[in-house]
Structures are given as C-alpha cells and as structure tokens.
Amino acid sequence: GRLDNDVPAQVAEHLLAVLREALSNLVRHAKATRADVAVHAADGRLTLVVEDNGVGIPAEGRRSGLRNLADRAERLGGALTLTSPQAGGARLEWSVPLG
C-alpha cells in the first residue's frame, strides 16, 4: 500500500520507534483500557496518531521519552503535538514530510 511505497526507509524506522515509545508510555503510565492507532500517508506527509482513554498527560514528571519523540520529528522537519481531549485520555500526533 501507500505506506510501503511512499515512506522512505529512514522515515519508516523513525515511525516504528515513535510508535513503540508511544505504546510503551501508554502501557506504563496512562492506565488506559483502550488505544487507537492510525497512520496516514497523504499530501506529502506521514502522520501517526495514538489516542487513549487513560489518565491524560501529567503537567509534571519525566518527559525524556516525549522529548525524544519531538526530537525525531524535528530532525525530519516535522512536529509532535500532545493534547488532552476534554473527554479524557491523551492524543499524540507525530507528523513529518515524506519528501
């Protein structure tokens, strides 16, 4: 599919590392009972979205894992966005250009 054909190997490696870290954080910290993962390759961008129904993102605490995800995005010309939806949980969006 598009992911196999449109995503350069270097970007795919970062995508897998980011997904592993996001899911690891979710399991260790979020106390979630559900996680939704979506990956889109469209309009010259690759976007990973991980959403959960856990406790949300604490205002304080270690951020080394999240900082690493942001650094990976920035090195590729992209960005990491973390939000806490009003319904609860957390939403992580990691997006980078494909070209």
Rank of each mutant, 00 (worst) to 15 (best):
R2W: 09
R2G: 03
L3S: 05
L3M: 11
L3F: 04
L3D: 06
D4C: 07
N5T: 12
N5G: 13
D6I: 05
P8C: 05
P8V: 02
A9T: 14
Q10R: 14
Q10A: 15
Q10L: 07
Q10P: 08
V11S: 07
V11C: 02
A12E: 10
A12P: 02
E13P: 01
E13H: 09
E13I: 12
H14V: 15
H14N: 12
L15M: 15
L15H: 07
L16Q: 06
A17M: 06
L19E: 03
L19H: 01
R20K: 14
E21I: 15
E21G: 04
E21V: 12
A22H: 07
A22S: 14
S24C: 09
S24F: 13
S24K: 10
S24M: 13
N25F: 01
N25S: 06
N25G: 01
N25V: 00
L26W: 04
L26C: 15
R28D: 12
H29K: 00
K31D: 13
A32T: 12
A32V: 10
T33N: 10
T33V: 11
T33S: 15
R34Y: 11
R34F: 11
A35R: 06
D36Y: 02
A42F: 13
G44H: 07
G44L: 11
L46G: 03
L46C: 06
L46K: 12
T47I: 02
L48G: 08
L48N: 08
L48D: 09
V50L: 10
D52C: 04
N53P: 10
V55G: 08
V55C: 08
G56R: 10
G56A: 03
I57Q: 06
P58S: 04
P58C: 05
A59Q: 14
A59V: 10
E60D: 15
R62S: 00
R62A: 00
R63L: 00
R63K: 14
R63T: 09
R63I: 01
S64Q: 03
S64C: 04
S64I: 03
G65W: 00
N68L: 03
N68H: 07
L69D: 01
A70V: 00
A70R: 08
D71Y: 07
D71Q: 10
D71R: 13
R72S: 12
R72I: 00
A73F: 01
A73I: 03
R75Q: 12
G78H: 11
L82I: 11
T83V: 08
Q86T: 09
G88P: 08
G88A: 09
G89K: 14
A90D: 04
R91T: 13
W94I: 09
W94E: 09
S95I: 03
V96P: 06
P97W: 11
P97D: 04
G99P: 15
